[in-house]
Amino acid sequence: MNRIDKCFAELSANGRKALITFITAGDPDLETTEKTVLEMFDSGADIIELGVPFSDPIAEGVTIQKSSLRSLKNGTTLDHIFTTVENIRKKTDKPLLLMMYLNTIFVYGTDKFFSICKDKGIDGVIVPDMPYEERDELLPYATKYGIHTINLVSPASHERIRKIAADSKGFLYCVSSNGVTGVRSNFDTDFNEFFSLIKENASCPCCVGFGISSPEQAKQMSSYCDGVIVGSAIVKIMESEGAGCVKHVGEFTKSIADAI
């Protein structure tokens, strides 16, 4: 059984919501990435997304764009990240995903990529520039190695939500509001309408992300679905604290975990 499915089954049995956190691998360095991942798991994160840096991350706001560039400047490659994942896997059995752009998979070699994901212990991938219609680019390979490709829906998806939600595995990534990643002070989405359409159709748990930056927001947003995803707010802490970020990220993670 895929670790993501196992995780949601346990959460559901305990009546708990999932906390999914994101950091960019290799920012400020891969050693810190490893420590931060373990610290976040210890502080209440259920699932962690590792961002694979890309030169042109079109779905990201400024915070993750900058983080991605810092990581690339450090010379981080996908192979380095796989080594880090291998190290993390020796210490935890919790679900790990890669969040990355399609070109970084395609150029690496799609079959080879998913084969290594399986070997190193990656459970799923989130690819923001691969819409549902182009899923055959990855899905046959991902399925072959038992890796989930996570579908996304956003408020602008409207009726598309029906078919996408009905054909999802692992969890459905619900984008809180139209736009790129990054902290938002408020949302202009009608969440009741958005999530009722999602829940009517979803074939797996649903988690909400994009712009969630405080325990209060996390608590409010988690009431609509099965979990929350927090990214830019953590990357911001890492940006200001550098290699000394681990403890601060842990405290922040705990504050969110306690709130939901």
Binding site: D129, E134, S154, A156, R160, V175
Partner: peptide, 12 residues
């Protein structure tokens, strides 16, 4: 070719 864009712009 193809349509490799974020979900948010697929309807557009």
């Amino acid at each position: 070719g193809g349509q490799y864009v974020p979900e948010t712009v697929m309807n557009a």
